[in-house]
Design a protein around this nucleic acid. Structure first.
Length: 930
RNA sequence: GGGCGGUUAGCUCAGUUGGUUAGAGCACUACCUUGACAUGGUAGGGGUCACAGGUUCGACUCCUGUACCGCCCACCA
């Protein structure tokens, strides 16, 4: 026997994982095969990684996401497809800038102290030092990404792509600049897109305020009152009110039509306007209108030609237009305004009000609807094409229910605010010629110039306004006046403006690279639901816009990973599970397998759940160890790899099961059924291979040299080899480790130098007819062994006590089966001897267990009290009678017989017949005790 | 306010187009350190499939409604 010391009884992931990963990467195994062969034939399999944030660390969500992608990648690679998985990270403009600003703050510095250029240098420095954390962690997870193709959204090529996309959209009139209410984060001091403003329900207040009516005589017309009452959640914005609106048909306020009000605290006269957008049922039916601080009011203001009075600074403080409140933070101003109104008797009441308020997705600060000049992408035309592509069946969501989420969002899409008032990112490729602008705006409002506005685009390229240059290359001088005094727009683009190009920009677009030609469109996209709007929908729109083709046709939305305790994992709740810790403790294979097995829906994680994977890894390791230790004789090279003809029943059975499991695993993987596939494999390896086949092989292996033994060794090896391949996508490290050890035990074992490229198992082309019979035979065997064990247990016979047993099988085939399996049954049931007979005349010295096809007996003389046996049999018979009654009733139901499919009825009849046989056997046994 | 998902064993979850006596892992009970593995083996206990109706010969599965839990979306000030 082979020296056992080579193989410890515990698998040690920490000793193998990093070693194998380095080996794979250094050998270039993760690169597509066509890189070497130049073959550009068959359709490749391509996945692009959802780029993690450069500031991020690997959390369990990433771990699941990338485990799934790695399974798909490795599976397809093994199936012989030219496979590419493109990795990379995005620059996460706001998040990264925040990180570096926090670092500066510790030195009591702000980015403005450094200036733009020096600050960006700092960010790059930070990126070089810390930006590879997550990609290092992905390697530890085992992600088989082609790192030679790793991309970063701020690298040169992708920056080039971003400019091309911007300018090209601008030329088509799909990008415009305008003055609108956008989501503003006063802490980050930048605009946010709608998706970056996260709505959260909060407990606020609904403040009721009095606005006095202007002029004389109003008191008489408004019963008893000389003021009106408005209700608001943000009283501080009243400083910018320019009207109060009422529904035109609201009878209560007819008297107010045409009247003016005095805006308290600022003493501005404001009109009462009539607008159907006002809901008379809500609040007092009177709405204060603040066009500069609320999107609805902004629209209303446009309709009525109201002034837009912005009373806030970008920091969220009241500005000079807020009079006495200047300099106060918006929340301080809120308190002060209320206090002052109260002092003047103009504060009515405040009622608790639960409503949802936007929060910055990066820093949680309450978002301020803020009027400012920003760049927008006009989304409707892009969304329409994505919807059309979907109708044509070009995109498919798994599971299907996400389709509606996607199409609903596209149908109601709003323009995308893409400019950000930060420094880290792609600076907008727009330059201003001061000279031309001055002459241009002499007769227009400088602050309100609009290049294009929503609705004004009617096809055809929009001409640049004089003084504004939108260009792919940095211009040296103004094309209009030749002036050299050009200033680039200081804003940068939303990070997602680079991410939405990811599927093709990472392949080289806008250059016409070989990669782009070969690998676009990609195959599958795997991501979590939270990113459908941010990213998936936009990638599809960009793919259609810039490449004329959807970037991928299948989108798999996997479950969200949450803490076992309930909601999301968050550092503040202390319920974060760090996947790196799990890898350190249990290994990446355990982490991957456990998560994949749980991934059928949303995953509620706790640390214990990873033990399944750990235990299974160890099981696989030890099963392999057993097989290898029993392959002596094969080192010489006598093992051809082909299976011999003289296979035993159990050999045929395990091969049949293997074929089944290959088929179901493939079917599940085809539809992203990682959980089902992994669970199927788990049970095959553990229950069929380990619990039964290995156990059945032991008597044969110990029986000395024989043709039968060699055949079993070959089958053991063959099935282990296939198991390793099947498991490899799920557990890449342990399978490679074992794979590489095989040649030491079987000379021609590893036909490929790495399991990464070992061909994926396929079902046997021609299946020997005996296999079906073998499956039946093994079922009998399993029943017999379990039955004997059951007898032993229920009769309290000690495990050490060996028993004399008898199997009675009237059917010749069943009889032959048990004769063949005699050594196995003796071993598995711990017998002293086993007689196999056609019929057996039972005596009081035997106790039995009946099955439809056979009965098993154990000799109990001097071991067991017959009274116990009597009770046991009586209980079994009672159970059987209940079962038979149920079936009889079913079969005597006319409707059932008339309507049920023939095979179902047949099944029921067989059940009844079998149960009858068993019952009869029990009756006979019971007779003995009378 | 809309939309989606969930409710199956003590816990975490499977259950494919309706059809054997509803399964697994963990936990539990009993026995077993048998020459791959105690991160193991064997046997076992444990479920009115959330509730109420309906369709059907037959419902965990399909339909309607209810309750509770969770998620997403949304400019009622």
């Amino acid at each position: 026997m082979t020296d056992e010391k080579e193989l410890p009884s515990r698998y040690q992931p920490s000793e193998t994982e990093s070693r194998w990963y380095q080996h794979w990467e250094s050998k270039g195994y993760f690169r597509p095969l066509s890189d070497k062969t130049g073959n550009t034939g068959a359709k490749p399999y391509v996945i692009v990684i959802p780029p993690p944030n450069v500031t991020g660390v690997l959390h369990v969500g990433h771990a699941l996401n990338n485990s799934i992608q790695d399974v798909l990648t490795r599976w397809n690679r093994m199936r012989g497809r030219d496979t590419l998985w493109v990795p990379g990270v995005d620059h996460a403009g706001i998040a990264t800038q925040n990180v570096v600003e926090r670092k500066l703050a510790k030195e009591k510095k702000t980015r403005h102290d450094l200036g733009r250029e020096a600050f960006l240098k700092e960010v790059w420095k930070w990126k070089e030092e810390n930006g590879n954390t997550i990609t290092r962690q992905l390697r530890r997870l085992g992600a088989s990404c082609d790192w030679s193709r790793e991309r970063f959204t701020m690298d040169e090529g992708l920056s080039h792509a971003v400019r091309e996309a911007f300018v090209s959209l601008y030329e088509k009139g799909l990008i415009y600049q305008g003055h609108y209410i956008i989501n503003w984060c006063p802490r980050c001091r930048t605009a946010l897109s709608d998706e970056e403003s996260v709505h959260k329900e909060i407990n606020g207040n609904f403040y009721h305020l009095k606005y006095p009516v202007a002029g004389k005589g109003t008191k008489a017309e408004l019963p008893g009152e000389d003021h009106i009452v408005v209700a608001t959640t943000r009283p501080e914005t009243m400083l910018g009110d320019t009207a109060v609106a009422v529904h035109p048909d609201d009878e209560r306020y007819k008297a107010l039509h045409g009247k003016k009000l005095i805006l308290p605290l600022v003493n501005r006269e404001i009109p009462i306007i009539l607008d159907a957008a006002v809901d008379p049922q809500f609040g007092t039916g009177l709405v204060k209108v603040t066009p500069a601080h609320d999107p609805n009011d902004f629209d209303m203001g446009k309709r009525h030609g109201l002034a837009q009075i912005n009373v806030m600074t970008p920091e969220g403080k009241i500005n000079e237009l807020g009079g006495a409140y200047q300099g106060l933070d918006r929340f301080a101003a809120r308190k002060q305004v209320i206090a002052d109104l109260e002092a003047q008797g103009l504060f009515v009441k405040s009622v608790p009000h639960r409503h949802s308020v936007g929060h910055c997705y990066r820093c949680e600060t309450v978002v301020e609807p803020y009027l400012s000049k920003q760049w927008f992408v006009k989304m409707k035309p892009l969304a329409d094409r994505a919807l059309k592509a979907h109708e044509e069946g070009k995109t498919k969501f798994y599971p299907n229910r996400w389709t509606k989420v996607y199409t609903n969002w596209l149908s109601g899409i709003r323009d995308w605010c893409i400019s950000r008032q930060i420094w880290w990112g792609h600076q907008i490729p727009v330059w201003y010629c001061d000279h031309c602008l001055k002459s241009e705006i002499a007769h227009s409002d400088k602050e309100n110039f609009v290049i294009a506005s929503p609705g004004s685009i009617s096809g055809g390229a929009k001409q640049s306004q004089r003084g504004i240059i939108v260009a792919r290359e940095t211009p040296k001088k103004c094309p209009a006046c030749g002036g050299m005094d050009l200033v680039q727009d200081p804003d940068v683009l939303d990070t997602w403006f680079s991410s939405w190009l990811w599927p093709f920009s990472t392949l080289g677009w806008p250059e016409k690279t070989p990669d782009l030609a070969r690998f676009y469109p990609t195959s599958d996209l795997v991501t979590a639901a939270e990113i459908i709007f941010f990213w998936v929908a936009r990638m599809i729109m960009a793919g259609l816009e810039f490449m004329g083709e959807v970037p991928f046709s299948r989108i798999y939305i996997h479950g969200t990973v949450r803490a076992a305790t309930g909601l999301k994992m968050s550092k503040s709740l202390g319920n974060v599970i760090d996947p790196l810790e799990v890898i350190d403790e249990l290994g990446a294979d355990s982490l991957r397998f456990s998560m994949l097995m749980l991934s059928a829906q949303d995953v509620y994680l706790s640390k214990e759940k990873f033990e399944v994977g750990r235990n299974f890894t160890n099981k696989l390791w030890n099963a392999s160890r057993f097989v290898m230790m029993n392959l002596e004789g094969f080192k010489s090279g006598s093992f051809s790899g082909n299976l011999p003809d003289n296979l035993s029943t159990s050999d045929l059975w395990i091969l049949a099961r293997l074929d089944q499991v290959i088929e179901t695993a493939d079917a599940h993987l085809e539809g992203f059924g990682m959980a089902q596939a992994s669970s199927e494999l788990y049970h095959f390896v553990w229950n069929d291979f380990c619990d039964w086949f290995i156990e059945l092989s032991k008597p044969v292996l110990m029986g000395g040299d024989s043709a039968e033994k060699i055949a079993t060794q070959k089958v053991l090896f063959h099935v282990l080899d296939r198991i390793l391949r099947l498991m490899h996508p799920f557990m890449p490290f342990v399978t490679e480790e074992i794979w590489q050890k095989l040649p030491a035990y079987a000379s021609d074992a590893s036909t490929s130098e790495t399991i990464l490229y070992a061909p994926w198992p396929v079902k046997a082309v021609s299946v020997p007819a005996q296999r079906a019979n073998a499956c039946r035979a093994v079922e009998w065997l399993q029943k017999a062994v379990s039955g004997l064990r059951d007898l032993r247990m229920t009769l309290n016979i000690p495990a050490q006590q060996t028993l004399k047993a008898v199997v009675a099988a009237p059917d010749a085939e069943v009889l032959r089966t048990f004769e063949r399996f005699r050594p196995q049954i003796v071993r598995l049931a711990r017998l002293e001897s086993l007689e196999v007979l056609a019929t057996f005349q039972k005596t009081k010295n035997y106790m039995g267990q009946a099955y439809p096809e056979f009965e098993v007996f154990i000799g109990i003389e001097g071991i067991v009290d017959p009274v116990k046996e009597k009770t046991r049999i009586a209980a079994k018979m009672e159970e059987l009678r209940r079962f038979m009654t149920a079936i009889s009733q079913k079969l005597s139901n006319d409707n059932f017989v008339k309507n049920a499919p023939e095979e179902i009825i047949q099944q029921e009849r067989e059940k009844l017949e079998d149960a009858g046989k068993v019952l009869k056997a029990h009756e006979e046994s019971l007779e003995l005790f009378k």
